[in-house]
Write a protein that binds this DNA or RNA. Structure first.
Lengths: 197, 197
DNA sequence: GTGATTGTGTAGGATGCGCTACATAAGTTC
DNA sequence: GAACTTATGTAGCGCATCCTACACAATCAC
């Protein structure tokens, strides 16, 4: 079977590809944040008119939801790969922070973490969706720690999550890869001390 | 001499006290952030009409500027007191982080740090003013570190500032005093290791 | 008192926002 | 071809935003 949906569509065909639209919107939201991107920004970037946008995505928050899904599936930090059971917990967590530093500084206009930044926006629906993804990531980290350091899982998860929030904020504030990485490594010192192998 | 400005004013007297207005606006901005507070929110909270507001403050960003000035003068973390030359640098910086945890969680509706959050708003004028104060605080920290650990001043300042950004974000996200404090103390471990006394 | 000065209240302008009604174009099915 | 289905383009609604024009009220100096 082909990967693309082969169901022959009826009616007038779309003039744009919704998946490409999601990718374009992801760049906009990542660079400027949910609140600062207007529907007009998106439609003009896509070369379409508002009705086409609303027919495809329902609302600005609806598009954002699809952008987050796409981001989590493709661009999020691969926690499942980094939180390995065969190495010290502190080492895995430090790797997560360093990976965050790399990704947050990667783009041409660094926007930090789309999910973390989304938890701070002024639209309730968009914010809750981002918060849900964020909580999910925190739960993965907490479970990973709890397997070997149950008494410290809560506070170390908070520390890692707080550091990632800070890294995302600083990436938006102009810190480049080197500075973010140095900060992540300093945080790693705390992890090594709190979670002795 | 009296503390209040005794210059006899000409013309019709104001129906409101601009200083009280700044204090009221500070609560609004702190609780909701610059972007989410409208001029209508402020004027209705003050019981005045827009022209009175604009006559007194010029613009929303103008009011915010005065709010920041007031905040820095009264509610900001007293770096000058905490960064003492008579104790280990790491200890002073840890005290700053713990003080931040206390203040960010203090209010009834915790809004983190007004300055840090202000650096993330969508209004250029307001953002730059907040950034300026933030840079000023970072410079104080960097100078304090450089006196005894010049080679590490840059990266440790980044780490402290990043952690404060994260603490502010997490305070807004629902972390209470205990969780913020635990995170601050974990960060302190990194400081102690990076800056041996 | 008269005039100058300053703040206030009513009312609304200008712009941008998210979003939609409606007629029509561009396809499929029969 | 006719009938149906779906997307598009034009145009604009309703609302919120920041901010202001203008007439009037309240105080001062004289």
């Amino acid at each position: 079977m082909d990967a693309t949906n082969k169901a022959k569509p009826r009616g007038r065909p779309r003039r744009f590809d919704p998946d490409e639209a999601v990718a374009t919107a992801q760049k906009l939201f990542h660079a400027r944040g949910f609140d600062a991107v207007s529907v007009a920004d998106v439609t003009s970037a896509l070369g379409i008119n508002p009705p086409s946008f609303y027919a495809a995505f329902g609302s600005k928050a609806g598009l954002y939801s699809r952008v987050l899904d796409h981001w989590v599936a493709t661009a999020a930090i691969p926690l499942a790969d980094l939180l390995r059971p065969d190495r010290p917990v502190a080492e895995s967590l430090a790797a997560v922070l360093e990976e965050a530093a790399h990704r947050y500084a990667a783009d041409s206009s660094p926007g930090g973490c789309l999910v973390v930044e989304g938890t701070r926006c002024d639209d309730a629906q968009a914010r809750e969706k981002a918060r849900a993804f964020n909580l999910q990531a925190e739960a993965a980290i907490r479970n990973y720690i709890a397997a070997r350091h149950p008494a410290k899982a809560e506070q170390v998860t908070d520390f890692v999550s707080t550091t990632m929030s800070g890294l995302s904020a600083k990436a938006r504030n102009g810190h480049g890869l080197e500075r973010l990485l140095a900060t992540a490594r300093l945080a790693g010192l705390a992890l090594a001390q709190a979670l002795p192998a």
